[in-house]
Each structure stands twice: as structure tokens, then as C-alpha cells.
Design a protein around this nucleic acid. Structure first.
Lengths: 104, 104
DNA sequence: ACCTCAAATCAAAAAGTTTTGATATGATTA
DNA sequence: TAATCATATCAAAACTTTTTGATTTGAGGT
């Protein structure tokens, strides 16, 4: 089940309402942490926790500028996520097989 | 935060290793519950729990035939999920804005 | 009608995730 | 170098999800 853990990581990033709200903010452009935190019901350490998950998923990238951390949506991360989503949800005609219980 | 709950539902379906393993089985074609259960470390009620989540997400559809329930990947569900994923992870040029903390 | 089988539901326990507040780290400023 | 600011890390509490075993429902078969 190990390989699925890795795929699950990308989607785990997407299944928390607060992380979705953070992504929504990043859609309008790069933001630094303090700005992301402000409009949300989130403490500083709470934001940091969620940003780590988003960055680890590859969907968000960050860079440092002095003491600020800036975050933005990653194009590569998005493409990877879409590819993964299509892979795991599209029938694989090559290895089609009958249900051997009911024969369909 | 309510609207995000609904989006989160699709991705929640994808962030459990057992559900990913179930989807993997469905890629090779429609299956009935008893067949899905067999190769996995999953009790009957455990499978039922996960199938409900997958069906509720729209990624999987089911139909009854006598006492068997059959499951298969849903094309509409996949398309909806990809669309949603793209929406939430693609920058929205129309409402671009500067980070008012650092001016970028 | 009764029996059997497949799947769904339920409640409690177990496991996992998120939040919180406190403390640590690392960069800048005085 | 000490003071301050932004962010990260940590451990414990709060909350959520998953697993488990028992029971229920609903469709056939006898």
C-alpha cells in the first residue's frame, strides 16, 4: 500500500477547508505568510502547519526573502496532480478483466 | 468556508490508501463488492464504508443486480474532479493582486 | 414462511489530523 | 550584541476519520 501513500499526499493537501481557502488566496498571486494568515481564522503556527503540507504536496512553492517566506502556486505541481488524478481514475483498457464473481 | 467543504469531498475520497487501492482495482473494469474486498485487508463493513465515500464523491458509480452491488469508475466524476482541481490550483489572472505586505 | 447470502448501518474503540500555546531558530535592526 | 520580527517546531489537547464487531435490511432460493 506504500505507493498509494505517496499519491495520497497530493490529495491530502486538498482535503482540508483551510488549505483550500489558502489556495484560493494564492490564485490571485504570490503572497507572504503574514498576509495569508490575516483574513483566516488561523494562528501563526496553524498557518505554518498547513503551508508545510501544501509545499510538501508540490502544489505550492515557497521562497525566502530575508525574514519573509513567500508562497505561490506551482505550475509543475498542478500538472503533476492532474496527471496523477487522471491516472488513478481512468480505466486501463490494457488490463481489463471480468468480475470473476458475476462474470461481467 | 462551506463551499470548500463540498470541494474537499472529492479530494477526501482520494486521500486514503485503501480507497486508492480500490480505484486501482476498478481501473481494470467493473467489479462487485465481494470481489473488491477479497484481495484487500478490509472487512465487509470496512469496504462498505469506503465505497460509500467513493460513490458520494462522484468518482465511482454503483448499480444493483439482485443482491450484488457493482461498482465502476465514473467518467463524469473524473471530468468533474479534473475541472475542480484545475480551478483551485490555477492562478486567476483576472483578480491578480500585489502582496500588500511586501509589495510583490 | 423460513433460510441464506450480500451489503448497509450502528456504536465503540483505535488511529490519524488539526489546533493551541509555548518555545526555538534565524534574519534584520538598533 | 541585544532586541525584534517572521516563521518553524514541539508537545498536548481537541477533533475527525477509520476500523471493528454486532446487528439490520433486503433480495433470492427452498
Amino acid at each position: 500500500m506504500g505507493a498509494y501513500q505517496e499519491s495520497a499526499k497530493v490529495f491530502k493537501a486538498l482535503c482540508d477547508p483551510k488549505r483550500l481557502a489558502i489556495l484560493e488566496q494564492l490564485r490571485s498571486g504570490e503572497k507572504c505568510a503574514c498576509v495569508l494568515q490575516e483574513p483566516m481564522e488561523l494562528t501563526q503556527s496553524g498557518l505554518s502547519y498547513h503551508m508545510k503540507i501544501l509545499c510538501d504536496s508540490g502544489l505550492v512553492e515557497s521562497w525566502q526573502e530575508g525574514k519573509w517566506t513567500h508562497y505561490r502556486l506551482s505550475e509543475a505541481g498542478r500538472e503533476n496532480a492532474v496527471k496523477l488524478l487522471l491516472t488513478i481514475t481512468t480505466p486501463d483498457v490494457a488490463q481489463e478483466s471480468k468480475c470473476f464473481s458475476c462474470g461481467r
